[in-house]
């Protein structure tokens, strides 16, 4: 499927590296997995791959907004920040760090010229094979749930991939 032989071999080598030759860092997987992702989900076909993508939490407009007063609503909501998945998030003008940002290793999206219209196709989290599988599965499930809550997906839904060393789990 267009994935070069050397890259297939490299992935195979990573999978077969075992406990002793296993890469020290999960980042050793990033390049090869990014390579495979971009080979299949090409820019030409309308996809984009986001490394360390951010899933921001949905927030309601400021509490100072009084329901029923449309002028007040519009002036306050215009200050809200909109994510690339069209989620109303905390405005940048609010002081302090934004709470609860999730950051999966990669997100594969259907993109477009709009800054707020990305649709999530895959969420990929990569861990070394010796890491806690249960914790990792909880983490990716949390990411998928947050992604689903954005509604930014096509009818075929969102798939989470947990790469745990030589094994990949589909969520």
């Amino acid at each position: 499927g267009g994935v070069p032989v050397w890259l297939r071999k490299r992935l195979r080598a990573l999978c077969n590296s075992g406990a002793t030759k296993r890469p020290h860092f999960e980042s050793s997987w990033y390049g090869p997995i990014n390579g495979v992702s971009y080979t299949v989900f090409t820019v030409k076909d309308g996809f984009i791959i986001k490394p360390q993508a951010k899933f921001r939490d949905k927030v309601s407009p400021p509490s100072s907004v009084i329901p029923g007063r449309s002028n007040s609503v519009s002036s306050n909501t215009s200050n809200m920040s909109t994510s690339s998945y069209n989620v109303e998030a905390r405005p940048r003008t609010e002081p302090g760090p934004e709470a609860d940002i999730l950051e999966p290793d990669f997100v594969i999206c259907i993109a477009g010229s709009s800054l707020t219209g990305d649709k999530i196709v895959y969420i990929i989290e990569i861990k070394r094979g010796d890491e806690d599988a249960f914790k990792a599965s909880e983490q990716i499930t949390h990411y998928v749930k947050r992604a689903v809550s954005t509604g930014a997906m096509i009818s075929t839904g969102i798939v989470g991939l947990l790469v745990l060393g030589s094994e990949t789990f589909r969520i």
Binding site: G1, V3, V40, G46, I110, V121, I154, T156, V159
Partner: peptide, 17 residues
């Protein structure tokens, strides 16, 4: 890789051009 290829095919069918 096969998973990716299958899903891409599926997406290209429903994706607006």
């Amino acid at each position: 890789i096969q998973c990716f290829l299958d899903r891409k095919e599926e997406i290209m069918k429903v994706m607006p051009v």
